[in-house]
Computed example of a mutant assay.
Amino acid sequence: MSVRVTLVAAARSSDLYDERFDDDRPLDRAGWYEMQRVAHALVPLSAADLRYCSPTLRSRTTGDALGYAPLAQPALRDCDMGRWRGFTLAEVMAREPAAVDAWVADPRSAPHGGETLLAFISRIGGWLDTRPAEDIAAIVAVAEPAVVRAALVYALKAPPRTYWYVDVQPLSTITLTGTPGRWSLRLDGGV
């Protein structure tokens, strides 16, 4: 039996240029506004058999505000950025440009002392592959945009560098259907 996993990117907690690695700030005004604007489309996902979220404040708040009452999953946490935690990408690039270049170029590198991109994608894929399929038709999970990107790269068996070319906006969704190790991307909507 296959399972449907819908991943919802958490609402924003800061302006794009002020996002920090391993950021755990609450939703900002724009995040709350966007949530109110799109809630009608996301609230029906609360009917899922299982509802999860990453342990970040913004993911938990997004899930709660949408009525999901999600269970926090440590495996859905954002990538461990080691000593870069709390800094913006611009700040890290100003201090360690060669390290940022190495990190982006090689999915096995971790110049920040945290998790490699490859390990991050594998961790998210491991969570995806251990979702129960028997007697479960639908799962919804609210997570950081980076987690949604990693899940998509894993599910499609895309090269790790594909991660850098996937743009996940706050409150966007992707749906994956399948069984462990055999996932398909499902695009809804259209005319």
Rank of each mutant, 00 (worst) to 15 (best):
F87P: 00
V191G: 13
D22Q: 14
A102T: 08
A150L: 07
W84S: 09
G190P: 08
A155H: 06
A110F: 01
S109A: 15
Y163A: 00
A41M: 08
R186T: 12
V140P: 07
D135S: 13
V104G: 00
S14H: 11
T62R: 09
T130C: 12
P160V: 10
L152G: 05
A102G: 05
V8L: 08
F87H: 15
E96T: 00
A48S: 15
D129R: 05
A141F: 08
D15C: 10
A75Y: 02
D167S: 04
I174C: 09
L50F: 04
T177C: 09
T130A: 14
W84R: 03
A72C: 09
Y33F: 07
T130F: 02
P159E: 14
S13K: 01
V140W: 06
V147C: 12
D167E: 13
G126E: 03
V3P: 06
T177Y: 00
S14M: 06
Q169L: 11
R77I: 06
F87N: 12
A155R: 09
R149K: 15
L176K: 05
R161A: 13
A150D: 02
R123C: 12
S59A: 15
G189D: 05
A72F: 03
A105S: 15
L176N: 04
D15N: 08
G125Q: 02
W164A: 06
I174G: 07
R95G: 01
C53Y: 02
V104Q: 08
L187I: 14
L118M: 10
R25N: 12
A146S: 15
D188M: 10
G126D: 01
P145F: 08
L185C: 01
D106I: 04
R58M: 11
P26M: 07
A150C: 07
A10E: 14
L117N: 03
P159D: 13
L66P: 09
R60E: 11
A98T: 04
P70K: 01
L27W: 04
A90Y: 03
R123M: 07
G114A: 08
P70L: 06
T173G: 09
V166C: 11
A138D: 13
E96A: 00
A48F: 06
G178Y: 00
P145I: 04
L42C: 05
G125K: 05
V38H: 11
E134N: 09
D106A: 07
R12T: 15
T88A: 04
Y17S: 15
G114C: 03
T88W: 01
A158V: 03
T130V: 06
S122D: 14
A110Y: 00
Y165T: 11
V8I: 15
H112L: 00
A141E: 03
P160E: 10
Y52G: 05
S172C: 08
P111G: 02
A143I: 08
W183V: 08
A99V: 02
A119D: 15
S109N: 11
R186S: 10
M81W: 01
V5C: 12
L57Y: 04
V100M: 07
E34W: 00
F120Q: 02
I174W: 05
Y52D: 09
A11N: 07
R37F: 02
A11G: 15
W183C: 07
R25P: 03
L171M: 11
P107N: 11
W84D: 01
P107H: 07
L27N: 08
L152V: 00
C53Q: 05
A11T: 05
A72P: 15
A94D: 07
